[in-house]
Design a protein around this nucleic acid. Structure first.
Length: 279
DNA sequence: CCGGACGCCTGTCGGC
DNA sequence: TGCCGACAGGCGTCCG
């Protein structure tokens, strides 16, 4: 489900309810997530949340060690929404729904509730610094940061025969771009998704970097994309779905040139593009 | 190293 | 109506 805009929307939605609050408890109803939720996560009890961040599609909740703790007790929580995860802010006594696997209970009775039908998500404890965590260590630059440029993409792609769509979705190249926004960015940049990454000229990568940034920023502005069941922590859907140019529009006319949108599987993922606009 | 296939898990939808 | 396969927004691992 969630790509960078949905994770960013989630982060912004949970921040006000969590910042500077003390964690009273963590309730685990089903520990069988992608990484099993272990007892270790209980060290979060009693700590105060002093920061919330996003790195790639990971949400990081910072909790400094309590006063008097031994050195090396830094750490925090890492949440990943996987394919079907979502977070909700609710009252501790709100009835649980199906697939509500973990509660982060705050002092005062507010709860951050993690729901994830497919359980590809993660809710775990990390020891500082998060940047060196195995899941985060080798990730590429943020697409909305300064390091992400057309020149970077051009240099990084030399010699590669993989399709440009798979290249753009590779988190070691750039993070946060999933199946929806890769299709959208390539359409905006006018690049055919199966073109070999290593055979695309620098000016086209400049256009692609710009298009990627633009699509992601617009999607964040709309609160993300709700296709089926994504909702922000206040249960609101994202409205970028109505601005999608190609994703999930197979057979429908391209808004720009009128040609029918094509659908094709690339790297085991459905991909959408317009033959009139993308070469 | 690179690129492609597979599996993790549940829910939904279309065709017969 | 029921069944069955295909497919779904991610990503680590394994293999050639």
């Amino acid at each position: 489900m969630p790509e960078l805009p949905e994770v960013e929307t989630t982060l912004r939605g949970i921040r006000p309810a969590l910042l500077n609050r003390r964690i009273a408890d963590i309730t685990v109803r089903n520990p069988a997530l992608r990484i099993p939720v272990g007892d270790r996560i209980k060290v979060a009890r009693g700590r105060v949340i002093n920061g919330l961040r996003r790195r790639a599609k990971y949400l990081l909740i910072d909790t400094p060690a309590p006063a008097g703790a031994k050195s090396g007790a830094e750490g925090g929580l890492m949440i990943h929404l996987g394919m079907s995860g979502s977070l909700r802010i609710c009252a501790a006594n709100a009835p649980t729904r199906k697939h509500d696997h973990v509660d982060l209970v705050l002092e005062g009775g507010t709860v951050l509730r993690f729901n994830d039908p497919r359980r590809f998500g993660i809710f775990t404890w990390w020891d500082a610094p998060a940047e060196s965590h195995p899941l985060i260590r080798d990730l590429g630059p943020e697409p909305l940061g300064e390091a992400f440029t057309g020149t970077y993409l051009y240099r990084r792609s030399r010699g590669l025969r993989v399709s440009v769509k798979n290249f753009l979705m590779n988190a070691r190249v750039v993070v946060g771009v999933g199946n929806i926004y890769a299709s959208e960015a390539l359409h905006l940049a006018g690049i055919h998704p199966v073109r070999a990454a290593g055979r695309i000229a620098e000016p086209r990568y400049v256009a692609l970097a710009e298009a990627t940034r633009s699509v992601l920023e617009n999607a964040i502005r709309q609160g993300g994309t709700t296709l089926r069941d994504f909702t922000a922590p206040d249960s609101q859907p994202g409205y970028f779905a109505q601005e999608l140019q190609v994703y999930d529009r197979a057979g429908a006319p391209c808004y720009r040139c009128g040609a029918p949108i094509r659908k094709r599987v690339i790297g085991q993922r459905s991909s959408y593009y317009c033959l009139g606009c993308q070469t």
